[in-house]
Structure formats: C-alpha cells, structure tokens
Amino acid sequence: MESPSKVKPILPWWAGGLGIGLVLIVAVALVQPIGVSTQYVVFDGVLLRALLPAVAAQSPYLEETAEGWSLLTYEFMFVLGVPLGAFMAALATGRLAWRGVPREWSSRFGPSPGRRLAWSFIGGFILLFGARFGGGCTSGHMISGLSQLAMSSLVFSSTLFVSGIVTARWLYDRRSR
C-alpha cells in the first residue's frame, strides 16, 4: 500500500498543466498535435503481422493505421518516450515502487491482486476500444483536440467526463451510501 507522501505529486497542478501545454505547443510547431492511442493499433498491427501475417492481412484498418508496418516512426517514438520519461522522472525522485493494487481500489474492493489485475485488463480493453472508436484518447482528443477547438473533441471529452464521473462514483462511493 502507498504511503500518502508517495501519492503527493512533486509538481503542483499548474506546473503539470503548463508543462503538458508546452509539450503540445512545441509538438504542433515542429510536427503535429500529440496523440497516444493510435500507436496501440500500430503495435498490434506490427506484432500480429510478425506472428500471424494471414490474420493481419484481413484487417484493412490495421494496414491503414500501421502504414508501412514500422515502429520506427515519429509517432511511435513519442509514445515510447512516455514510459521512458516517466521511468526517469520516478527514478530521479525516488518514486519507483512495485505496486499491484492501488490504495483507493483496495479500500473499496479489498487487497486481492487477482481481482484488481483482472479489472485493470478489462478497463484497459474498454478504454482503448472507446479511444479507437472515437478516434483519440485523453491526449489526442482532450489536450490536442480541445486546444484546436475541434467539435469532435468537445463531444468526446464531454461524454467521457460524464460517464467517467458516473462510473467512478458508482464504483468507489457505494460504501458511503
């Protein structure tokens, strides 16, 4: 279980927000807006093509998304950079820690790792299914899209927050009812 000091972030909200804003602005000036979820499809495509090329060939969506079936692209390197940067930041601030079951989860659903890991998997499945369905995730739609005043991103972000809030309150607050 995490101690409260480990949960308290190093950067205050405004530094985090302006930092993300700055990454977006530099990315838009030099290449294109930021995005993450497409690269899950690209990775799937490259992996599937290496393991089961006949199956991969059946999906025009995979072929279109993983153009050239390569991971050596600017977009994939950006996404690869995310865990790299997070790892280095956690290492530099002494925050690397093995943890399977988060505090909020165990106080509501108990400390069983199996249960948490299974729901993490299911949640991740739903998350990326929704992201690909909508054409983006928190990075691509909310940060990049809203900054460009995209209507599609406004719709996606609004319904995302409504369902996220309803689900989170239903999941985690039932005990207090």
Binding site: E104, G123, I126, L127, L128, G130, G135, C137, V162, S163
Partner: peptide, 27 residues
C-alpha cells in the same frame, strides 16, 4: 465512444498515455 472510454477510465484509473507512464513506475 466517449461514454465507453469514460467507463474504462474510471475502472482502471489510467488513460492510454498515463497507463504507460504508471507501468514504467512499477505499477
């Protein structure tokens, strides 16, 4: 799609980008 994404967001507590960051921290 946003409604579906929100459910996944609440269940995992991560989004596609922050899951990668959290994974690298040892979560």
């Amino acid at each position: 799609a946003g409604l579906i994404f929100g459910v996944g967001f609440a269940v995992t507590g991560y989004c596609p980008g922050t899951a990668l960051a959290a994974a690298a921290e040892g979560k």
